[in-house]
Design a protein around this nucleic acid. Structure first.
Lengths: 217, 217
DNA sequence: CTTGACATAGAAAATATGTTCTATATAATT
DNA sequence: AATTATATAGAACATATTTTCTATGTCAAG
């Protein structure tokens, strides 16, 4: 009885995707058939051929498990295929503190943090991540323990959140940055804390905050 | 001439990885042998078997292209394997508002958001994500536009951030949840806003906040 | 020097898997 | 009513792939 077989084909795509995720290899036609309850491999091939005609799948003739799913099919499935290109592996450089910032030496750890590319804009070069220690940025909605991702840059607009390197102490701190002409003001985002003032050449902006991640439970 | 065959094995791992990336399926032993210049499949199997013994690869006997590379091998290769298992594809269900919460119907979108598994604890079943609209949770450091990830659960501790379904309006809202015996209090985290009170059976906790993500630039 | 572990090759056998062919049934079309 | 496209099954076949077996050459250790 020819039921709605477009649904059946969709089921094939879905199964193909699942199976590939789980086994790290494409399924055979028989495996697909088994899942769908189709008892002959030729029957599966029949549907596969149609899926290929619709450009929802692609095959390399003659190779075992030589099936692929196309981007078109992925859209149809509503999956955003998390390929390697979609993922960024950011260096996770340790802690950044407001009061007693990390020495730059610490900025060489080998840990990384994986974050989906889609959470960022165009330029994702050299992004790096730090974990915030202390609650000096609480008014900027950044809490103790939050992970902050920075885009490296030497200049930021006044008032932006930035990682700032203080030459004389060799430490880096997270503050709101204000260039006031004769000096710069590093402003904690916490009403109970006082700003720091430095000559402009005594500090160096290392990057600006582009993402904040907070783990709760 | 028995050269340094540990290097040869490394080459196998490397080729396996490359091939898998490129073709979206594991290579056969013959394909590996061809690449390495080994002329017999048994020779390849010989090395593969040793790689398996070292737990650098894994196989399912009898299945064509039934090879895998282990995490241990990935480390060896210096690749940070952003595999599917390391990634979670959470359903991104739309917006959640405090004042005028989304109707449940909206909770069926097909968008997803990719987040690294490592940002979560043990249980990552059925996590889902919403984007916050409005600033009613500002005191909880959750801002307009933030992405919030929930773990589905029916009970939360008093004071925890929860997605709560209000039966009569058919809407879901993000609040601090307090069970006060005769009633429940849904408390916005914004001093300028008043709490909502409901009979306990009029609301249903849908999940608790486990992650907050804020994109800045 | 002998022994044994390792690296290699080739062929043959055993399976796994894709492909082709024949046949049947239903639904839509002519 | 006849025709055609679609959906399905089963068997047989061809080929891809893994697995087993036998052999040979090198090297290190006894």
């Amino acid at each position: 009885m020819p039921r709605d077989s477009s649904e059946k084909r969709m089921e094939i795509l879905k199964f193909f995707w699942q199976y590939t995720q789980e086994h790290r290899r494409p399924p055979t036609m028989r495996e697909i058939g088994e899942h769908l309850g189709l008892s002959s491999p030729s029957h599966v091939k029949y549907h596969i051929d149609r899926l290929c005609a619709q450009r929802l799948m692609k095959r390399e003739p003659g190779v075992a498990r030589g099936l692929r799913i196309t981007a078109k099919a992925m859209e149809l499935l509503g999956e955003s295929l998390p390929t390697e290109e979609e993922m960024l592996s950011l260096p996770f450089l340790g802690y950044i503190v407001a009061s007693a910032p990390v020495p730059v030496e610490a900025l060489s750890g080998s840990e990384t943090i994986e974050i989906s590319r889609s959470l960022f804009g165009r330029n994702v070069d050299n992004l790096f991540a730090l974990r915030v220690q202390g609650n000096s940025m609480i008014d900027a909605l950044i809490n103790d323990g939050d992970i902050v991702v920075f885009r490296p840059q030497q200049r930021v607009e006044n008032g932006e959140l930035a990682a700032v390197w203080i030459t004389e102490t060799g430490e880096t701190t997270l503050k709101r940055f204000y260039d006031e002409g004769t000096r710069v003001r590093l402003q904690p985002a916490n009403v109970t804390m006082q700003p720091l003032y430095y000559p402009r050449e005594a500090v160096e902006v290392q990057g600006k905050v582009v993402l904040v991640i907070r783990q709760l439970a």
